[in-house]
Design a binder for these strands. Sequence first.
DNA 1: CGATCGTAAATTGTTAGCAATTAACGATTG
DNA 2: CAATCGTTAATTGCTAACAATTTACGATCG
Lengths: 228, 228
Amino acid sequence: MIPDGLLLPQPSQPSLSEVVLKILREMISAGQFKPGQHLKEAELATALKVSRGPVREALTQLEAEGHVELRRHRGAFVSTLTRVDVEEVHTLRTAIERLAAERACTRMGEPEFAAMDAVLEKMKAATRPVKPEDAVRLDLQFHDIIYAACDHQRVQRVWTSIRSQVSFFLHTRNVNFPDFTDVGYPEHLELRNALSQADPAAACAAVEKHLSGAYERLKKLDLPDKPV
Amino acid sequence: MIPDGLLLPQPSQPSLSEVVLKILREMISAGQFKPGQHLKEAELATALKVSRGPVREALTQLEAEGHVELRRHRGAFVSTLTRVDVEEVHTLRTAIERLAAERACTRMGEPEFAAMDAVLEKMKAATRPVKPEDAVRLDLQFHDIIYAACDHQRVQRVWTSIRSQVSFFLHTRNVNFPDFTDVGYPEHLELRNALSQADPAAACAAVEKHLSGAYERLKKLDLPDKPV
DNA sequence: CGATCGTAAATTGTTAGCAATTAACGATTG
DNA sequence: CAATCGTTAATTGCTAACAATTTACGATCG
């Protein structure tokens, strides 16, 4: 018998598709490609030293995540995120995060709250001014815990599909208005406290309040009105 | 100048991946494959007279739709839908359909209501006993109108990703308890009337009531408890 | 006789090359 | 000179062959 979990946490070497996906996702989120830019399979393939197959698979996944638009026989074009997209992501996120919180609040135990508190501690302790990427990372880490705790594969999947867009928006905002310092910690703490009541209705309300606050700040960004 | 819409409705010949996807999706929904069955790329490819590429793409899409499970270096296995899956699909669907209805009720115009009424008319007029596949088709057609009217690409996409699972559950239910005849028409009519009030809160409540009713009936099915 | 290790078969992951489609350019015509 | 039609270049869609990985079987050893 093998000691439990000795060689197991070896997530079976990621496939090339996954590697390529991660790289491209990161590059797009970081704004390395211009919106509207044509991503050519062959170009990316040679640049990444792989063949077109894995690149192709990564691109279809990126389409599902809303980062690129796939046009038949034309290829992949980086999406230009408009204020309509901000609204869509916000409303969809609210819908699923309400559900996630409802379920999570009665399922979270000691370890989950400990993980949350660790993140909260980092938010409080972060040296001002907080770097945008750190702020975004902590913010998402906090919400990831809720989604993980809600124990709902399909909700988890939807969250994954909008997560990097949320990341993009948060990043843009934090670059333009670096006030995460002030609102980040208290607002998340409030949400944590609501969750610890283990009352679905309360958790739901807290999520709505939290997200609508974030959305209000997000709307201050000036984004393109229409895709060119 | 070309007369508006003469050659346009030519949706640019579907790709092989799409054809394969449609076929496999249909076969799985209709129960042509046993749950847990191993779908081998090469087998499907030769059977469908295409190469493994398109089959592969179709399988990854089917995974996103929850019809198969993809295991690294093992391949695609037909999902066995458990009562946990029924619950997940139901709760996720409720979350997004609330949102869809909220938006749809203030966006629906004459044509949308006309389309709904046409479906309702067919529900009422259907000769008893209604064939399960007809009942499912009409049911989904009705809800498709809501999703289309809500004007929300991302919600639409999530709906697409669970739609055929909903279809599967509805089908199974209608086969076992053919009472769509009695509840189908009045319940959908009630929802339609709520939507026509153009009041988001009312629409939301109506959706919740409608779906929870459907879920209660769905729970009567005895489904496997655990994936084998 | 049971357990373990090595080997082989089957299947997926990846690559490279060919075919089909699109879009852009330039010649041609009214 | 503007508009249209053929031609060509570029890019994706698809195919077929190769490499890597996993599982299953059987020989070997205790």
